[in-house]
Computed example of a mutant assay.
Amino acid sequence: MSKETGVEWDKRTYNPQDYDDSNDINKALSAAHTCLYGIAHSVIVALGCSPGLGFVHVGHERSFVYDVADLYKAELSIPVAFRTVAKEPDDISSAVRLAMRDAGTIFQS
């Protein structure tokens, strides 16, 4: 995605306690993944499953949420984050949330 969008990528570096202590792409990835976690959590609960019953991720109240979200990051949240940062918005988190909302419509049918 870095090559496709021209957004410089070094590595995933972020401080979960301080969102603003990251570069733009890491902020965008955090925002996009958070949106994806919310969607996954909603679906898991709606299906009557336990969000904490993970297979890959364990020991967290949302382990299964992270397991399910990981299945969609490469096709949804990662591209959204890079494409949004490439547009250089003033408010990255807001732009990412809107882009995730719009990207999510491809799953509705």
Results as ranks from 00 to 15, higher is better:
residue 43 V to Q: 09
residue 79 P to V: 05
residue 95 A to K: 04
residue 17 Q to G: 00
residue 43 V to P: 01
residue 94 S to F: 11
residue 61 E to G: 09
residue 100 M to G: 00
residue 47 L to Y: 05
residue 63 S to K: 06
residue 67 D to A: 07
residue 72 Y to N: 08
residue 88 E to A: 10
residue 11 K to T: 10
residue 86 A to D: 04
residue 43 V to H: 01
residue 18 D to N: 08
residue 81 A to K: 06
residue 35 C to H: 03
residue 44 I to G: 05
residue 25 I to S: 05
residue 39 I to F: 08
residue 81 A to G: 09
residue 4 E to P: 00
residue 77 S to G: 11
residue 29 L to T: 03
residue 6 G to A: 02
residue 98 L to K: 09
residue 57 H to Q: 09
residue 29 L to G: 01
residue 45 V to K: 03
residue 99 A to T: 02
residue 63 S to T: 06
residue 88 E to I: 14
residue 4 E to A: 06
residue 58 V to L: 11
residue 67 D to Q: 06
residue 24 D to I: 08
residue 80 V to G: 12
residue 92 I to Y: 06
residue 51 P to Q: 11
residue 69 A to I: 09
residue 72 Y to D: 13
residue 7 V to H: 09
residue 31 A to I: 05
residue 104 G to P: 02
residue 38 G to I: 12
residue 82 F to H: 05
residue 103 A to T: 08
residue 3 K to G: 06
residue 37 Y to C: 04
residue 90 D to S: 12
residue 34 T to A: 15
residue 75 E to K: 12
residue 80 V to Q: 15
residue 40 A to Q: 05
residue 58 V to T: 15
residue 60 H to P: 07
residue 67 D to Y: 03
residue 106 I to Q: 15
residue 47 L to P: 04
residue 26 N to A: 01
residue 34 T to P: 07
residue 53 L to H: 12
residue 73 K to A: 13
residue 5 T to S: 04
residue 39 I to H: 07
residue 58 V to N: 12
residue 12 R to W: 06
residue 16 P to R: 12
residue 43 V to T: 02
residue 7 V to P: 03
residue 63 S to Y: 06
residue 39 I to C: 05
residue 100 M to L: 02
residue 96 V to W: 07
residue 25 I to L: 08
residue 44 I to N: 05
residue 17 Q to C: 00
residue 20 D to T: 01
residue 103 A to S: 12
residue 72 Y to A: 15
residue 6 G to P: 01
residue 73 K to M: 13
residue 102 D to R: 07
residue 19 Y to K: 01
residue 26 N to M: 03
residue 17 Q to H: 05
residue 42 S to T: 12
residue 52 G to S: 05
